[in-house]
Design a protein around this nucleic acid. Structure first.
Lengths: 146, 146
DNA sequence: TATTGTTATACTCTATAACTATA
DNA sequence: TATAGTTATAGAGTATAACAATA
């Protein structure tokens, strides 16, 4: 590929390989998720809300490395689509607890199936054991201290 | 981490894990490369020019998935820093052949050492065999057809 | 005094249309 | 007619400062 270019040096770098793989996987994810009208970040937010009913904006920001001002519009948008509901937080008057609506839960049931489908397709060249190994090594990279 | 949040579902997705690992590795790369005043994309462009003297803008764009209009400013900037030189292309009057200047080559010798250093640090939790496996699996993901 | 959520805003990255000069 | 390089510009994505309400 790339004409007769020598790309061996870049291909020896972990960052280059990881970024290219991420872009490939995410591009496929975006294609398949388009019918649900969900970007990766929308999916992540809705998924975390679904699996953690009552979660706050602040917790979403911490878990997904989103800055609070940038979450405002996103939440406004998925609330307008009636996918989430904001309720007063039981103990903290400043915060709002987020939950999926029935419509949001139904959408996410489909979307999570689509995500699994996208993963299987992206990893089609890998055996199940290789997928498991890849996942384990990636987590080792981003979960290790330093 | 993340308070008592349930993030198990997201952590089961290949895209989520790959993206988080890429962001971790790239953040470290940026920190270490800052003294050279090079962003990842600057490093990639200079590295490809160094390993492929006479390469054209068009080839850089194809290899790195950069759109031509977005490469213009980057090249202008590293040319102003006297890291590259543009010479008329030997056979195509429309194109320019790009090469590193002596200053650019000297900087890249240091920068490639820094990149290797950054990689080793990012993969500190992995054995050399695991790094090799991780690289192989990542390339399998982004090089496989479909 | 610190924190949650918000507005306004700026900066970077990425994308599209249209031009010029050469092929 | 097609391609290499360029300009101008629009749209995402990401960042900081500052504020009101509550802890």
């Amino acid at each position: 590929m790339n004409d007769g270019l020598d790309t061996r040096y870049l291909e020896s770098l972990l960052g280059y390989n990881t970024r290219r793989a991420a872009l490939t996987i995410i591009a496929r994810f975006m294609e398949r998720m388009a019918p649900h009208d969900l970007r990766p970040v929308d999916f992540s937010v809705l998924s975390l809300i679904g699996h953690n009913p009552g979660i706050t904006s602040r917790q979403l920001c911490a878990a997904l490395s989103i800055l609070p001002p940038n979450l405002v519009g996103l939440l406004k948008s998925i609330e307008k689509r009636e996918l989430i509901r904001r309720s007063p937080h039981p103990t903290d008057g400043r915060a709002m607890g987020l939950t999926l609506t029935a419509k949001g839960a139904a959408l996410m049931q489909q979307a999570e199936a689509t995500a699994l489908d996208s993963d299987l397709s992206a990893a089609a060249a890998l055996t199940p054991a290789e997928v498991k190994t890849l996942t384990r090594l990636l987590q080792k990279v981003y979960l290790s201290p330093t």
